[in-house]
C-alpha cells in the first residue's frame, strides 16, 4: 500500500531523518576551503532555481526555456538597486527582488499559461529573449553587456566579510525555500497542479479553473527563481545579460532538473549539485565541458529519462 497519497500529512518521519547527515555536510562545507564553499553556494542557488523550474516542468507539465528571465529579474533588481540607489542591504534587496519577480511572473504568466506544450516553450523563449535583448541594449540602466558590479553587501548594517559568511546566508535561504516549496507542492494546491498536468480535461471537469492554477504555479516558480537570482548577484558580485538572462542559462536549469529527475521533489537539487561540480571539474581540467554536458543530456534523455533521483526511487520501489 505504498504511495497511498502524496500529501504532506502522510509523509513519514523516517525519510526526513535521512536528510540530517546531508544537512550536517552542508554546514561543514566551509572546512573544505573557499573554492568548495563558493561552488557549493552556487549549487545551492542553482538548486533553488532548478527546484522552482520544476514547479512548472515536473508538477504542472510545462517546459519553460525562459526561466532565466526570473533568475535574471532577481539578479538585475538587486544589481540595479545597488548601481542606481546604492542600496546594499540584503534584507532590502532580496525582498525587493521577490516583489519584482512576482510582478514580472504575473504579467508574463498571464500571457504564457493560456498555452501548453511547444507553444508555451516557444513563448517563454521569446519573452526571455526580449528581456535579454533589452538588458543588452539599455546600457544606461542595465550596464549593457558589461553588466553590473556589486562591490559590497550588508546584512543589517554589517558588511558581509567573506564567502563563507555569505555561504551561510545562502544556506539559510536555501532551506527556507526548500521548506516553503515542499509545503506548497505537497499541499492540495500542489496535488491539483499534478492533476492538471496528467489530465487537463479531467481536472477541468473536476471543477478546477486550469488557467488560475497554472498562473499560480508560474508565479510561485518565478518567485523562487527571483530569490535565487538576487542572492546569486550579491554572492558573485557581478552580473551580465549572458550570465543571468540568456537562453543558455535557462537551458542549464532545464538540464539540471532533467539530470536530477523531474519526477522527484529533490531531483533538481541533486541535478544542480552534480551539474555544478562536474562543470567545475571538467572546465578546470581544460576538457571539453560542452561535449560532456551535451553527451550527458543526450544519454539521460535516452537511458534514464526520469533522471538520477527518478531512477533511485524506482529501484527503491521495485526492491
Amino acid at each position: 500500500m505504498k504511495a497511498e497519497t502524496n500529501l504532506v500529512n502522510s509523509v513519514n518521519l523516517k525519510t526526513n531523518l535521512l536528510y540530517i547527515p546531508l544537512v550536517i555536510v552542508l554546514l561543514l562545507i566551509p572546512l573544505g576551503g573557499e573554492y568548495i564553499t563558493y561552488l557549493t553556494g552556487l549549487a545551492l542557488l542553482f538548486g533553488i532555481a532548478a527546484l522552482s523550474l520544476n514547479v512548472l516542468l515536473g508538477y504542472t507539465g510545462l517546459l519553460s526555456f525562459g526561466h532565466a528571465l526570473f533568475f535574471g529579474c532577481g539578479a538585475y533588481t538587486a544589481g540595479m538597486l545597488v548601481k542606481h540607489l546604492s542600496i546594499t542591504s540584503i534584507e532590502i534587496l532580496v525582498p525587493t527582488s521577490i516583489i519584482t519577480s512576482v510582478i514580472l511572473a504575473l504579467l508574463v504568466g498571464i500571457v504564457c499559461v493560456r498555452h501548453t506544450r511547444i507553444y508555451f516553450t516557444m513563448l517563454t523563449i521569446a519573452i526571455s529573449q526580449l528581456f535579454y535583448a533589452l538588458a543588452h541594449k539599455l546600457r544606461p540602466i542595465t550596464g549593457g553587456d558589461d553588466g553590473i558590479r556589486i562591490y559590497s553587501t550588508h546584512v543589517f548594517g554589517h558588511e558581509v566579510a567573506s564567502i563563507t559568511e555569505f555561504y551561510y546566508y545562502i544556506l539559510v535561504a536555501f532551506f527556507l525555500c526548500l521548506f516553503c516549496l515542499r509545503i506548497i507542492l505537497r499541499s492540495p494546491f500542489g496535488l491539483t497542479l499534478q492533476a492538471i498536468r496528467d489530465s487537463e480535461l479531467r481536472a477541468r471537469f473536476a471543477g478546477i479553473s486550469i488557467i488560475k492554477y497554472r498562473l499560480a504555479a508560474f508565479v510561485v516558480s518565478g518567485l523562487f527563481a527571483g530569490i535565487a537570482g538576487s542572492m546569486y548577484a550579491l554572492f558573485l558580485g557581478q552580473i551580465s545579460p549572458d550570465d543571468v538572462l540568456s537562453v543558455m542559462r535557462s537551458g542549464e536549469f532545464v538540464a539540471m532538473t532533467l539530470l536530477g529527475g523531474y519526477t522527484s521533489f529533490i531531483g533538481p537539487i541533486v541535478g544542480s549539485f552534480v551539474f555544478t561540480y562536474l562543470k567545475a571539474v571538467i572546465s578546470s581540467a581544460a576538457l571539453y565541458w560542452y561535449l560532456v554536458f551535451g553527451i550527458l543530456i543526450v544519454s539521460i534523455v535516452i537511458f534514464v529519462p526520469t533522471g538520477l533521483m527518478g531512477e533511485i526511487e524506482k529501484r527503491r520501489r521495485t526492491g
Binding site: A3, E4, T5, N6, L7, N9, I183, I184, S187, P188, F189, G190, L191, T192, Q194, A195, R197, D198, S199, L201, R202, A203, F205, A206, G207, I208, Y213, T263
Partner: peptide
C-alpha cells in the same frame, strides 16, 4: 480521463478539494 501518475486516492481528493474549495496551499484544518 484520469491522472496517470497519481494514486487512486489522490485522484478523488483532487475532486473533493476542488468541490469544497480546499485546493489551497494550506489545509484549512487537519
Amino acid at each position: 480521463a484520469i491522472y496517470e501518475n497519481l494514486t487512486t486516492l489522490d485522484s478523488l481528493l483532487v475532486s473533493i478539494f476542488s468541490n469544497t474549495n480546499l485546493s489551497h496551499v494550506f489545509y484549512k484544518t487537519k
